[in-house]
């Protein structure tokens, strides 16, 4: 009877330890996943910002949408520019001598600002 009870307790203890280990591992993996996502978001944001600043500085210097298109090596379609990468999309629209820049990551707007043209 004692042996059976001892074996039962042993199995219970092993199960409890396995549960604790798997829970701990799951939490750690989740934290690693969240870290990887945050790092990827930061990388995409920085890359989008870099391209947007390049376009903005070109527009500030020239005030010419064609110069922005040439700088980013993209075609101009109906006066709008679209710079696409596998991570983000930059859209540039022009009105009243100003340029509106918007960056999207999977349809979510991650960056938006307006740039005044050259004086």
């Amino acid at each position: 009877m004692d042996n059976r009870r001892g074996a039962g307790l042993l199995i219970l203890e092993i199960a409890a330890m396995l549960l604790v280990f798997s829970l701990g591992a799951a939490v750690c993996l989740r934290a690693f996943g969240a870290a990887a996502k945050a790092r990827d978001d930061a990388r995409v944001r920085n890359a989008a910002m870099e391209a947007a600043v390049m376009a903005a500085e070109t527009f500030r210097a020239t005030g010419d949408p064609d110069s922005v298109a040439k700088r980013l090596n993209i075609p101009s379609v109906d006066g709008e520019l679209c710079y696409e990468t596998s991570d983000f999309t930059l859209r540039f629209s022009f009105s009243g001598g100003e340029m509106q820049v918007q960056a999207f990551e999977a349809d979510a707007c991650i960056l938006s600002f307006r740039v005044g043209g050259a004086l």
Binding site: A31, A34, D41, R45, M49, V53
Partner: peptide
């Protein structure tokens, strides 16, 4: 693993926070 995951998460969040701050600052400047 717990120590590494927490350190990694903290650093990644700091990186993201810095990227957001830089984006906001640039947008405010322009």
């Amino acid at each position: 693993m717990a120590i590494f995951s927490v350190t990694s998460l903290t650093k990644a969040r700091a990186e993201l926070s810095r990227a957001v701050t830089v984006c906001d600052a640039k947008a405010a400047f322009y």
